[in-house]
Design a protein around this nucleic acid. Sequence first.
DNA 1: CTAAGACCTGACGTTGACGTCAGAGGCAAG
DNA 2: CTTGCCTCTGACGTCAACGTCAGGTCTTAG
Lengths: 135, 135
Amino acid sequence: MRIGDLAARSGVSVRALRYYEEQGLLEAHRSSSGQRHYPESAADRVHLIQMLYAAGLSSRTIAELLPCVESKVSTPATRARLAAERDRIDAQIAELTRTRDRLDTVIRVSESPDSDCTRLAYQDVPAEAGRSTTP
Amino acid sequence: MRIGDLAARSGVSVRALRYYEEQGLLEAHRSSSGQRHYPESAADRVHLIQMLYAAGLSSRTIAELLPCVESKVSTPATRARLAAERDRIDAQIAELTRTRDRLDTVIRVSESPDSDCTRLAYQDVPAEAGRSTTP
DNA sequence: CTAAGACCTGACGTTGACGTCAGAGGCAAG
DNA sequence: CTTGCCTCTGACGTCAACGTCAGGTCTTAG
C-alpha cells in the first residue's frame, strides 16, 4: 500500500501522512527507491490519530500515548497521562453540552410561533420575511 | 469598568478583549481620552464568547450568532445557522465521547492488576522495570 | 521506450487567536 | 510635579497542522 492509497482510504492528505511520520506517529517501510509502503493496519492507525487530534491532543501527546492506545499496554506514567487526557475530554464534553443546550434554548424560543420574541424579530426584519408568502 | 478590570473579571487577556472588539464581538464606550469603558454585563458577554470559541466557532460565525444568543431573537437565516452549529457541536460531542470511551478502555485494561497485558508491559520495558524484581 | 502520473525531499506559505513590543499619552497618589 | 501604573494604537511574532510549489526520481500502461 503506497502513500496515495493510504491517503484515499483514510481520507487524509498525502501531506498529512508525511507530517505524521515526521512527528513520529506513523512509520512506513521504505522500498529500495525510498518510497513509503504501509500495511493495511495503517488506515486504522490514521483514524486513531485523527480521533486524538480532534480531541485536542497535540502531536507530541499523541506520540506519547498512541502506543498505549493501540497495544493497551502502559506504564504508570503513561496511565496518568491517559487519565489526565480523559478527564480533559470529559470536561470538554461537559462544556460543549452546556453550549449546545444554550443554542438549543435560543433555537426553541425563536422557533415557537406564539413567542413574542419571534414576532418582534419579524417586525424588526425590514422586508424579506413578509415577501415569502407573496411571490 | 476599564479594560483591565474586565480582563481580570472575565479571565481573558487585555489583548483578547481588544481583539474581540476588532472582530465586532464586543463594543465599548470610549471616554473623552479614548479609553474603553464597559458595563457589568460585558463579563457575561465575554464568557459567552469564550464558550463559542471553545465550541469551535470562528470569530465571524460568533459575530453572526452572538446577537441571537444574547437577545434570543432570530431571523430564519440565523436560525438555520444556529441549528447547523448545534448539530456540528452534537457531532463533536459524539466523537469526543467515543474517544473518551476508547481511552477509558485502555485505562481500565491496563489498570487491572491481573491483566496479562499489564504484566507483559512491564516485561517489555527494557531495564528500568526489570531491575525492581530481578537483576 | 516513453509519457503520464505517483512519489521523493526541502522549503516557504497559510490561518486564527491571540502574545509581545515600541512609543506615546492618561490618571490618581504623594 | 512626578512617579508609577494603566491604557492607547500599530505592527510584528507565534504556533500547529498542514497546503503548496519546485525540481527531481520512480513506476507502469501502452
